[in-house]
Protein backbone atom coordinates (compact mmCIF):
# COMPACT_ATOMS: atom_id res chain seq x y z
CA UNK A 1 0.00 0.00 0.00
CA UNK A 2 1.50 3.32 -1.07
CA UNK A 3 1.16 6.38 1.15
CA UNK A 4 0.06 9.43 -0.82
CA UNK A 5 3.06 11.71 -1.22
CA UNK A 6 1.31 14.76 0.18
CA UNK A 7 0.45 13.23 3.54
CA UNK A 8 3.90 11.67 3.85
CA UNK A 9 5.60 15.04 3.52
CA UNK A 10 3.27 16.98 5.71
CA UNK A 11 2.33 14.61 8.55
CA UNK A 12 3.92 15.90 11.72
CA UNK A 13 5.75 18.65 9.85
CA UNK A 14 5.98 22.20 11.13
CA UNK A 15 7.63 25.48 10.35
CA UNK A 16 8.19 28.60 12.43
CA UNK A 17 9.94 31.74 11.19
CA UNK A 18 10.35 34.86 13.26
CA UNK A 19 11.77 38.13 12.05
CA UNK A 20 12.32 41.52 13.59
CA UNK A 21 10.18 44.42 12.37
CA UNK A 22 10.52 47.71 14.22
CA UNK A 23 11.34 46.22 17.63
CA UNK A 24 8.68 43.54 17.27
CA UNK A 25 9.32 39.86 16.68
CA UNK A 26 6.85 38.92 13.98
CA UNK A 27 5.91 35.38 13.06
CA UNK A 28 6.37 35.45 9.31
CA UNK A 29 5.55 31.79 9.13
CA UNK A 30 3.66 29.43 11.38
CA UNK A 31 2.42 26.18 9.93
CA UNK A 32 2.04 22.62 11.12
CA UNK A 33 0.31 19.38 10.28
CA UNK A 34 -1.24 16.60 12.32
CA UNK A 35 -0.24 15.41 14.91
CA UNK A 36 1.76 18.59 15.53
CA UNK A 37 -0.06 21.79 16.38
CA UNK A 38 1.50 25.24 16.75
CA UNK A 39 -0.35 28.08 18.41
CA UNK A 40 0.61 31.67 19.06
CA UNK A 41 -1.26 34.15 21.21
CA UNK A 42 -2.18 37.14 19.07
CA UNK A 43 -0.23 39.81 20.95
CA UNK A 44 2.91 40.83 19.08
CA UNK A 45 5.76 42.09 21.13
CA UNK A 46 9.55 42.07 21.33
CA UNK A 47 9.34 38.34 21.99
CA UNK A 48 7.23 36.03 19.83
CA UNK A 49 5.48 33.24 21.73
CA UNK A 50 4.65 29.87 20.23
CA UNK A 51 3.10 26.85 21.94
CA UNK A 52 4.07 23.38 20.74
CA UNK A 53 1.10 21.07 21.11
CA UNK A 54 0.03 17.68 19.92
CA UNK A 55 -3.47 16.51 19.06
CA UNK A 56 -4.95 14.30 21.72
CA UNK A 57 -2.39 15.56 24.22
CA UNK A 58 0.39 13.20 23.25
CA UNK A 59 2.38 11.28 20.71
CA UNK A 60 2.14 7.57 19.96
CA UNK A 61 4.31 4.93 18.37
CA UNK A 62 4.70 5.70 14.67
CA UNK A 63 4.26 9.45 15.10
CA UNK A 64 6.98 11.54 13.55
CA UNK A 65 7.33 15.26 14.13
CA UNK A 66 9.70 17.42 12.07
CA UNK A 67 9.92 21.06 12.97
CA UNK A 68 12.12 23.73 11.48
CA UNK A 69 12.50 27.03 13.30
CA UNK A 70 14.18 30.18 12.01
CA UNK A 71 14.89 33.06 14.34
CA UNK A 72 15.91 36.08 12.29
CA UNK A 73 18.57 38.63 13.10
CA UNK A 74 17.77 40.36 16.40
CA UNK A 75 14.43 38.54 16.79
CA UNK A 76 13.32 36.66 19.90
CA UNK A 77 11.25 33.53 20.18
CA UNK A 78 10.04 31.62 23.21
CA UNK A 79 8.75 28.09 22.60
CA UNK A 80 6.50 26.59 25.25
CA UNK A 81 4.13 23.68 25.69
CA UNK A 82 0.99 23.22 27.74
CA UNK A 83 1.32 20.36 30.17
CA UNK A 84 3.86 17.60 29.77
CA UNK A 85 4.49 16.14 26.34
CA UNK A 86 3.21 12.61 26.70
CA UNK A 87 4.53 9.69 24.72
CA UNK A 88 2.28 6.62 24.59
CA UNK A 89 3.17 3.27 23.18
CA UNK A 90 -0.22 3.25 21.50
CA UNK A 91 -2.88 5.91 21.34
CA UNK A 92 -5.44 5.41 24.10
CA UNK A 93 -8.75 4.65 22.43
CA UNK A 94 -8.99 4.50 18.63
CA UNK A 95 -9.02 7.80 16.85
CA UNK A 96 -10.44 8.39 13.44
CA UNK A 97 -7.80 10.04 11.33
CA UNK A 98 -7.06 8.98 7.81
CA UNK A 99 -3.36 9.88 7.98
CA UNK A 100 -2.85 7.68 10.99
CA UNK A 101 -4.41 4.68 9.34
CA UNK A 102 -2.18 5.05 6.30
CA UNK A 103 0.85 5.48 8.49
CA UNK A 104 0.35 2.39 10.58
CA UNK A 105 -0.26 0.27 7.51
CA UNK A 106 3.19 1.17 6.23
CA UNK A 107 4.88 1.06 9.61
CA UNK A 108 3.68 -2.44 10.36
CA UNK A 109 6.09 -3.79 7.75
CA UNK A 110 8.90 -3.01 10.14
CA UNK A 111 8.89 -4.69 13.54
CA UNK A 112 10.08 -1.70 15.52
CA UNK A 113 8.67 1.20 13.55
CA UNK A 114 5.06 1.05 14.79
CA UNK A 115 6.25 1.62 18.34
CA UNK A 116 8.86 4.31 17.69
CA UNK A 117 7.94 7.94 18.23
CA UNK A 118 10.33 10.44 16.66
CA UNK A 119 10.68 14.16 17.04
CA UNK A 120 13.25 16.10 15.08
CA UNK A 121 13.77 19.83 15.51
CA UNK A 122 16.11 22.10 13.59
CA UNK A 123 16.72 25.58 14.91
CA UNK A 124 18.51 28.30 12.96
CA UNK A 125 19.42 31.45 14.87
CA UNK A 126 20.72 34.48 13.00
CA UNK A 127 23.07 37.03 14.56
CA UNK A 128 21.69 38.55 17.80
CA UNK A 129 18.65 36.27 17.69
CA UNK A 130 17.38 34.72 20.91
CA UNK A 131 15.69 31.36 21.31
CA UNK A 132 14.15 30.24 24.57
CA UNK A 133 13.10 26.62 24.36
CA UNK A 134 11.29 26.10 27.65
CA UNK A 135 8.74 23.30 27.25
CA UNK A 136 7.13 21.32 30.03
CA UNK A 137 8.91 18.02 30.69
CA UNK A 138 8.50 14.99 28.52
CA UNK A 139 6.75 11.99 30.04
CA UNK A 140 7.23 8.61 28.42
CA UNK A 141 4.54 6.16 29.48
CA UNK A 142 4.99 2.44 30.04
CA UNK A 143 6.71 0.69 27.12
CA UNK A 144 7.05 3.92 25.09
CA UNK A 145 9.87 4.02 22.53
CA UNK A 146 11.02 7.57 21.83
CA UNK A 147 13.78 9.23 19.78
CA UNK A 148 14.38 12.98 19.78
CA UNK A 149 16.93 14.96 17.77
CA UNK A 150 17.43 18.70 18.25
CA UNK A 151 20.00 20.66 16.25
CA UNK A 152 20.80 24.29 16.95
CA UNK A 153 22.66 26.35 14.37
CA UNK A 154 23.80 29.53 16.03
CA UNK A 155 25.27 32.45 14.12
CA UNK A 156 27.70 34.97 15.61
CA UNK A 157 26.09 36.67 18.62
CA UNK A 158 22.84 34.71 18.76
CA UNK A 159 21.88 33.24 22.14
CA UNK A 160 19.83 30.29 23.30
CA UNK A 161 18.36 28.73 26.41
CA UNK A 162 17.63 25.07 25.79
CA UNK A 163 15.71 22.97 28.26
CA UNK A 164 15.23 19.25 27.73
CA UNK A 165 13.70 17.34 30.62
CA UNK A 166 11.94 14.14 31.42
CA UNK A 167 9.87 12.68 34.22
CA UNK A 168 9.70 9.04 35.23
CA UNK A 169 6.12 8.39 34.09
CA UNK A 170 2.64 8.41 35.58
CA UNK A 171 3.42 8.09 39.26
CA UNK A 172 -0.32 7.71 40.02
CA UNK A 173 -0.28 4.51 37.99
CA UNK A 174 2.87 3.29 39.68
CA UNK A 175 5.03 4.02 36.64
CA UNK A 176 8.60 4.85 37.60
CA UNK A 177 11.00 4.80 34.63
CA UNK A 178 8.87 2.07 33.04
CA UNK A 179 9.24 3.18 29.41
CA UNK A 180 11.21 1.09 27.01
CA UNK A 181 13.57 3.53 25.29
CA UNK A 182 14.36 7.25 25.29
CA UNK A 183 17.15 8.64 23.10
CA UNK A 184 17.67 12.38 23.09
CA UNK A 185 20.28 14.35 21.15
CA UNK A 186 21.00 18.06 21.53
CA UNK A 187 23.65 19.24 19.12
CA UNK A 188 24.86 22.81 18.95
CA UNK A 189 26.80 24.43 16.13
CA UNK A 190 28.28 27.90 16.34
CA UNK A 191 29.06 29.37 12.92
CA UNK A 192 29.08 25.84 11.54
CA UNK A 193 31.43 24.41 14.14
CA UNK A 194 30.04 21.78 16.52
CA UNK A 195 30.53 23.04 20.09
CA UNK A 196 28.43 20.57 22.06
CA UNK A 197 26.62 17.32 21.48
CA UNK A 198 24.69 15.85 24.35
CA UNK A 199 23.33 12.36 23.81
CA UNK A 200 21.31 10.70 26.54
CA UNK A 201 20.08 7.15 26.17
CA UNK A 202 17.72 5.78 28.80
CA UNK A 203 16.74 2.23 28.13
CA UNK A 204 15.32 -0.67 30.05
CA UNK A 205 17.69 -3.09 28.41
CA UNK A 206 17.06 -6.74 27.95
CA UNK A 207 19.09 -9.11 30.08
CA UNK A 208 22.78 -9.29 29.22
CA UNK A 209 22.75 -13.03 29.74
CA UNK A 210 21.00 -15.53 31.96
CA UNK A 211 23.37 -15.10 34.89
CA UNK A 212 23.12 -11.34 35.43
CA UNK A 213 19.80 -9.54 35.47
CA UNK A 214 20.05 -6.04 33.94
CA UNK A 215 19.95 -3.00 36.16
CA UNK A 216 16.59 -1.43 35.48
CA UNK A 217 16.33 2.28 34.70
CA UNK A 218 14.56 2.75 37.98
CA UNK A 219 17.50 1.20 39.86
CA UNK A 220 20.00 3.38 37.99
CA UNK A 221 18.15 6.69 38.30
CA UNK A 222 16.61 6.50 41.77
CA UNK A 223 15.81 8.21 44.02
CA UNK A 224 15.07 10.84 41.37
CA UNK A 225 11.97 10.99 39.22
CA UNK A 226 12.89 14.00 37.10
CA UNK A 227 16.07 14.81 35.15
CA UNK A 228 16.65 18.10 33.39
CA UNK A 229 19.34 19.26 30.98
CA UNK A 230 19.71 22.99 30.47
CA UNK A 231 22.09 24.68 28.06
CA UNK A 232 22.75 28.40 28.11
CA UNK A 233 24.77 29.85 25.29
CA UNK A 234 25.48 33.28 23.84
CA UNK A 235 26.09 36.89 24.97
CA UNK A 236 22.46 37.71 25.85
CA UNK A 237 22.44 35.15 28.66
CA UNK A 238 25.95 35.80 30.04
CA UNK A 239 24.69 37.46 33.23
CA UNK A 240 22.51 34.41 33.99
CA UNK A 241 25.48 32.10 33.32
CA UNK A 242 27.65 34.18 35.66
CA UNK A 243 25.04 34.10 38.43
CA UNK A 244 24.47 30.33 38.19
CA UNK A 245 28.20 29.57 38.03
CA UNK A 246 28.84 31.77 41.03
CA UNK A 247 26.12 30.02 43.03
CA UNK A 248 27.51 26.62 42.03
CA UNK A 249 31.07 27.50 43.02
CA UNK A 250 29.84 28.41 46.50
CA UNK A 251 28.55 24.88 47.12
CA UNK A 252 30.53 22.64 49.41
CA UNK A 253 29.70 18.96 49.76
CA UNK A 254 30.19 17.13 53.04
CA UNK A 255 29.53 13.43 53.46
CA UNK A 256 25.84 12.67 53.86
CA UNK A 257 23.96 9.51 54.77
CA UNK A 258 21.32 9.82 52.10
CA UNK A 259 20.89 11.58 48.74
CA UNK A 260 19.58 15.17 48.71
CA UNK A 261 16.06 15.75 47.29
CA UNK A 262 17.59 17.73 44.42
CA UNK A 263 21.11 17.92 42.99
CA UNK A 264 22.56 19.91 40.12
CA UNK A 265 25.83 20.37 38.30
CA UNK A 266 27.32 22.95 35.96
CA UNK A 267 30.03 22.45 33.35
CA UNK A 268 31.36 24.91 30.81
CA UNK A 269 31.02 23.98 27.15
CA UNK A 270 33.60 24.95 24.55
CA UNK A 271 36.18 25.89 27.18
CA UNK A 272 33.81 28.32 28.85
CA UNK A 273 33.73 30.85 26.03
CA UNK A 274 30.31 29.97 24.71
CA UNK A 275 28.13 28.72 27.51
CA UNK A 276 27.31 26.15 30.14
CA UNK A 277 25.46 22.88 30.47
CA UNK A 278 23.47 22.36 33.64
CA UNK A 279 21.97 19.11 34.83
CA UNK A 280 19.37 18.86 37.55
CA UNK A 281 17.86 15.79 39.18
CA UNK A 282 15.00 15.91 41.66
CA UNK A 283 12.75 13.57 43.56
CA UNK A 284 9.79 15.77 42.55
CA UNK A 285 9.44 17.39 39.15
CA UNK A 286 7.78 20.40 40.80
CA UNK A 287 10.98 20.99 42.79
CA UNK A 288 13.03 20.84 39.58
CA UNK A 289 10.66 23.35 38.01
CA UNK A 290 11.02 25.68 41.00
CA UNK A 291 14.79 25.38 40.74
CA UNK A 292 14.70 26.24 37.02
CA UNK A 293 12.33 29.13 37.63
CA UNK A 294 14.72 30.57 40.17
CA UNK A 295 17.88 29.94 38.12
CA UNK A 296 16.47 31.53 34.97
CA UNK A 297 14.79 34.50 36.65
CA UNK A 298 17.31 36.80 34.97
CA UNK A 299 15.33 36.22 31.77
CA UNK A 300 12.61 38.48 33.17
CA UNK A 301 14.82 41.45 32.38
CA UNK A 302 15.12 40.36 28.75
CA UNK A 303 11.62 39.13 27.91
CA UNK A 304 9.57 40.78 30.64
CA UNK A 305 7.77 39.42 33.68
CA UNK A 306 4.56 38.54 31.81
CA UNK A 307 6.25 36.40 29.18
CA UNK A 308 8.45 34.77 31.83
CA UNK A 309 5.32 33.82 33.80
CA UNK A 310 4.04 31.89 30.81
CA UNK A 311 7.05 29.59 31.13
CA UNK A 312 7.17 29.57 34.92
CA UNK A 313 3.82 30.61 36.44
Amino acid sequence: MQVPLVSRIHAGGGRIAVSLHADKSVLSELSSAYPLKLLSPSNQDATAIVYLLTYGGGLVGGDEVNLRVDVGSGARLILLSQGTTKVFKTRPGRRLASIRVEHSAVASRDDNAPFTTKQSFDFHLADNGLLLLLPEPLTCFRDAFYNQYQRFHIQDNASAVILDWITSGRLALGEDWAFSHHHSVNEIFHNGRRIAKDVILLENTTELNLKIPSRSLQERLRPYSCYAMLILVGPQVQSIITAITHKYDQLSVFKTRSPAPLIWSVSPIDAGKAGVIIRVAGMESEAVKEWLKDALRGLERIIGVDVYRRAFP
Partner: peptide, 17 residues
Protein backbone atom coordinates in the same frame (compact mmCIF):
# COMPACT_ATOMS: atom_id res chain seq x y z
CA UNK B 1 25.60 7.97 24.27
CA UNK B 2 25.55 8.70 27.96
CA UNK B 3 23.28 6.18 29.68
CA UNK B 4 23.56 7.38 33.26
CA UNK B 5 22.68 11.06 33.82
CA UNK B 6 22.86 10.59 37.60
CA UNK B 7 26.50 9.51 37.30
CA UNK B 8 27.16 12.53 35.10
CA UNK B 9 25.81 14.95 37.73
CA UNK B 10 27.76 13.28 40.54
CA UNK B 11 30.99 13.16 38.53
CA UNK B 12 30.53 16.84 37.66
CA UNK B 13 30.11 17.69 41.34
CA UNK B 14 33.43 16.08 42.26
CA UNK B 15 35.22 19.39 42.76
CA UNK B 16 32.54 20.62 45.17
CA UNK B 17 33.55 18.08 47.82
Amino acid sequence: ANTWPLGEILAGRHDLQ
